[in-house]
Design a protein around this nucleic acid. Sequence first.
RNA 1: GAGGAUGUAGCUCAGCCGGUUAGAGCGCAAGUUUGUGGCACUUGAGGUCGGGGGUUCGAAACCCCUCAUUCUCCCCA
Length: 448
Amino acid sequence: MQKPGLPEGTRDFGPEQSRRRAYIFETVRTVFIKYGFQPLETPAMENLSTLTGKYGEEGDQLLFKILNNGDFLKNADPDILTTKNSARLVPEISKRGLRYDLTVPFARFVVMNRHALTFPFKRYQIQPVWRADRPQKGRYREFYQCDADVIGSESLQYEAELVQIYDEAFAKLHIPVQIKINNRKALFGIAEAAGITDRFTDMTVAIDKLDKIGMDGVRRELTDRGIPAAATELLEKILSAPSINALRPVFAASETGLKGLEELDRVFRFLEKLPLQNDLVFDITLARGLSYYTGCIFEVVAKGVSMGSIGGGGRYADLTGVFGMPGLSGVGISFGADRIYDVLEALACFPKSLTTSVPVLFVALDDATHAYAFECVSRVRAAGIPAELYPEPGKLKKQFEYAAKLNIPLVAIAGETEMQNKTIAVKNQQSGEQRTMALEELMTTLGA
RNA sequence: GAGGAUGUAGCUCAGCCGGUUAGAGCGCAAGUUUGUGGCACUUGAGGUCGGGGGUUCGAAACCCCUCAUUCUCCCCA
C-alpha cells in the first residue's frame, strides 16, 4: 500500500470549494461576455519551442517540461548525456511543456488562425496554467487565469474597457480593489531623462519595489545594480511627485515618455464621465515583469488584504511577431482566480447560497414508501428542481443527519399515511416546522 | 536558486529537561430514542509517533541522513 499525496503546490477542490470557484469563474465570464469577448480554449501542453524565450530567463526555468515518450535517451546526444548539462539536455529529451500563461498560447492561436479571424479579435479564456515556482502563500504551481485580450487594434478605448471590466467584476464579487495603471513608455521616458536607457529593466525592477521597500531600499537597489548616483537622484525626484501633469516637464526631451503620458491621459478621459466603483490610480512605480508589455500596464490589488496582485495585464505592441505575424497590437488583462478565492475567503464574502446542493431531500420509512418517494423525487426533478432521495429507507436519524450535513433545507418524509393520501410531510430543517402537503404544493414552494 | 519552520489518530494539536500500557478536542460508529437531525450523556473503533540509521539499560523526545509539507527572499496571478 502506498500513502496517497499530491504534487507540491497543487490542490484538490472539494464540493464546496468547487462551487465557490465556479462562482468566481461565472462572475468573471459573465462580464467578459457582456463586453463582447469570445470563448477560446487551448491545450494544456504546448510545444516547448512555443513557450521558451517568451517569459525571460527566469520564466524558462519555471516552465514544466514534459518528458518525451518512448525510449527518449536512445537518440539523445551522448556527449550531452555524459556532461550532465541539464540546460542542453532538455531539448534532447523534452519537446513539450505545460503552458505558463494564456497570452502566449493565444498569440500562437491567432497566428495559426489569422485567416479565420475577424480583427479586432476579442477572446476570453479561463483555464489553468502551471509554473514550477516555489509554492508559498497565494502562490501555487497549478492555478487558473481568467484572461480577456483584444488583438488587432491600437485603440485606447480597449484599455478603458478593460478597466471597466476589472471594476465591474470586482464590484460583483464584492471585493474592494485598487486598479493601478501605468505605461511602459512613461517608464522608458524616465530612463531617458535619467540617461540610463541601457539599464531600463534594472530600473523598473528596482522602482517596482518602492511601496515594499521604501525609497531607501530603492536607492540601495539601484546602486547595487550599478546605476550612477546622478541618475538615482533624478529618479528619486521623479518618484516623489508622481502625477501625469508633474511628469510632463521631466519628459520634455523624451518623445516616448510624452507619448506614454498622452496614452494614459486618453484612458482617463474615456472614463472621466463614467463613475467607477473602485479606485483607478496612476502609479508610476508599477512596472510588471513580463517583458512583452509596451504600452499601458495594469495591476489590481485587493484593499485590506495582503495577497499580492489578484490581476494584471497590459498592452503588447508585437506579441505575434515571434510567430511570424508582426505589427499586431494587443491589450489584455488577467484575473488570478485562486488568489481571488483566497481574498474572498479572507473577507468572508462568498454568498451563503453556495453551501447548498439541493433544496429538498426525500426520505422513506420502508420499501413500499421508498418506491413512492422515488416517484415523488422524479416528479420534482422533472419540474426542473434539484432533489435527492436517501437510498436506505428506515432509520430517520441517519437520513436527517445526512440532510443536516449537506445543508439541505427541507426534508420530505414519505410514510404510510402520506403515501395513501398522495401527500408528503415536509419539515423545515432550520425552523423545525413540519407540515403535510400535496407534492404540487412543495413544488410551488420551491418555485417550479 | 537562497534561507527558516513543521511532520504524533480521519482533522486540529498537546506530550516540559529521554523513563511504565502515547493523550485531548473535533469527527466517525453504536446506543439512550423501531416516524424526526442539531443538544446532552454512555460506549466503542482508529496511531509503522513521516522514513532510515545512530546514541542509550530505555527514544515520539537527543544526533545524522532522507522524504514531504509550509513560510520568506527572488519573481509572479
